[in-house]
Simulated scan of single mutants.
Amino acid sequence: MTDAESQLFRFRFRVRYGECDAQSVVFNARYADYVDISVNEYIRTLFGDYQRLLDQDLDIQVVSLNMNYRAPAKFDDVLEARIAAGRIGNTSFTLHLEFNRFGNETLVAEADITYVLIQPSKMAKTPVPDSIRELLERGAPGVLISHAGESTA
């Protein structure tokens, strides 16, 4: 892992048996779940918890998810999601994720997910406040969260 990669937010998780298909690899649709759980951990790290957004009458909705598959992942592999902010617009922002196999650094998949910020009380999009923009721009460099049970040393 390069110094730049170690400065990204990282989230590790283990591939479960039920996430694999008849070819014994992770079923493609499961990667959307992987993006979701990884971004949830990222958002929790940035904002403290999701409720802090909701308490401000703010929420995020997915408007685009693009996936590129690079190599198969299999049952019991530990995957590491690395997340960095992409474009931060007026009412939306994009996060870039890379999923690497922990231990050998094989790039398994990449994703770009775009969210629009909404005001739930009006169910309408709303501008990204400066405070949230700053958190997204700063990110969570060097933070590692693991749900995989591996040694993080």
Rank of each mutant, 00 (worst) to 15 (best):
M1S: 15
D3S: 14
D3T: 15
A4F: 04
A4Y: 03
E5G: 01
S6R: 15
R12M: 02
F13T: 04
R14G: 03
R16H: 13
C20I: 10
C20N: 12
D21H: 08
Q23P: 03
V25D: 00
V26R: 08
F27H: 15
F27L: 05
A29L: 07
R30F: 07
R30A: 10
D33H: 13
Y34Q: 09
D36V: 11
I37W: 09
S38H: 07
V39I: 15
E41W: 02
E41S: 07
L46A: 13
F47N: 05
D49P: 00
L53I: 10
L53C: 02
L54C: 03
Q56E: 12
D57A: 10
D59S: 14
D59P: 01
A73R: 06
K74M: 09
F75Y: 15
D76P: 09
D77Q: 01
A81S: 10
R82Q: 14
A84D: 13
A85C: 15
R87Q: 15
N90F: 12
T94E: 14
H96W: 09
L97N: 05
E98A: 04
E98D: 12
E98C: 06
R101Q: 05
F102L: 05
G103I: 11
N104F: 07
D112E: 13
D112W: 04
D112V: 08
I113W: 00
L117K: 08
I118K: 10
S121F: 00
M123T: 12
M123S: 15
M123K: 13
A124N: 04
K125H: 14
T126F: 03
V128T: 13
P129W: 03
S131K: 03
R133Y: 07
R133F: 10
G139E: 06
A140E: 00
G142R: 03
V143D: 01
E150P: 00
T152N: 14
A153H: 13
